[in-house]
């Protein structure tokens, strides 16, 4: 099967400080991958580079077989809209309802034509969105068990609920890949477990690939097929989750 993410020897620096120093890996369709490593190892930076939120200074990144460095803005958007993104926090627009936030997931779909520019305007809030989008957004909320909170404002939701709304928004995109940067880090153990379980279940059901970073080794072990550890900007370990022994993992955090 073809790789949907390919990183070839990528390097990145903030100012003169090198952060990523030659990172290479591939992700197959349907695979779930956890990223671990101590604070400052470069996990978030790698994730931001994969989404082209930060420029890389060397190497190549391809998503779905397209090298993202040289894409035109419209091509970049159509590539990005196949990737659902969930950050650690502040994913949602605080003053809008949960439903509106989920409707936003459709903003990235087909933004090429002039007609879609007009329909994009209707997706700013669930009030103006068309029936198809509203119904689909309710379905996505239902899949994360939040249908009854559809009209609650995002800033009145608990941390766990917010992350589930963010997941629903990612589902609204009908993505081929979901990338999440410490999605459970600001949650209590039970909510964190719930959110991670939701990710792996939804991804398995829909055949969506998953990349997530975490500091929680048991999340990495329980919810991903494959594990990649980072250490000062390099990948120090990469293997099937079952075959990595815990002693080696402890060493990665040292």
């Amino acid at each position: 099967m073809a790789a949907i993410v390919t990183a070839e020897d990528i390097a990145m620096s903030y100012g003169n400080t090198p952060i990523l120093k030659g990172v290479s890996f591939e992700l197959e369709a349907g695979e779930s991958l956890s990223l671990i490593g101590s604070n400052g190892a470069g996990k978030s930076t790698l994730i931001r580079c994969l989404l082209r939120l930060e420029p890389i200074i060397a190497g190549r990144i391809s998503l779905f077989g397209r090298e993202i460095q040289n894409l035109k803005p419209s091509e970049l958007r159509s590539t990005r809209c196949r990737v659902g993104v969930v950050f650690q926090r502040h994913n949602l627009v605080p003053r809008l309802s949960a439903l509106s936030n989920v409707v936003h997931g459709a903003l990235g779909r087909n933004t090429q034509s002039f007609g879609s520019m007009i329909s994009g305007i209707s997706l700013w809030s669930h009030i103006t969105a068309g029936r198809v989008h509203r119904e689909r957004a309710m379905e996505c909320l239902d899949r994360v068990n939040l249908a009854d909170l559809a009209h609650r404002r995002a800033d009145s939701l608990s941390g766990g609920q917010s992350q589930r709304v963010a997941i629903a928004r990612a589902l609204m995109q009908d993505p081929d890949l979901i990338i999440a940067d410490e999605p459970a880090a600001s949650l209590d153990p039970i909510a964190g477990e719930e959110v991670m379980g939701l990710f792996s279940e939804l991804c398995r059901e829909a055949g969506v690939s998953l990349i997530f970073s975490t500091h929680n080794i048991s999340h990495a072990v329980d919810f991903a097929d494959r594990m990649m550890a980072m250490k000062s900007g390099r990948i120090s370990l990469d293997g099937r989750t079952g075959s990595v022994d815990l002693q080696a993992l402890k060493a990665e955090y040292a």
Binding site: C81, G84, H90, V93, R95, L107, G108, G120, A170
Partner: peptide, 28 residues
């Protein structure tokens, strides 16, 4: 706070849409 606008543009939304879907509602 631009992080929700960034989350939208990371999922392929146009700049124009992220302004009105994320920044303007927060500033209302």
């Amino acid at each position: 706070d631009r992080s929700s606008a960034e989350a939208l543009s990371a999922s392929g939304a146009r700049r124009f849409d992220t302004v009105f879907a994320a920044v303007v509602p927060a500033a209302t």
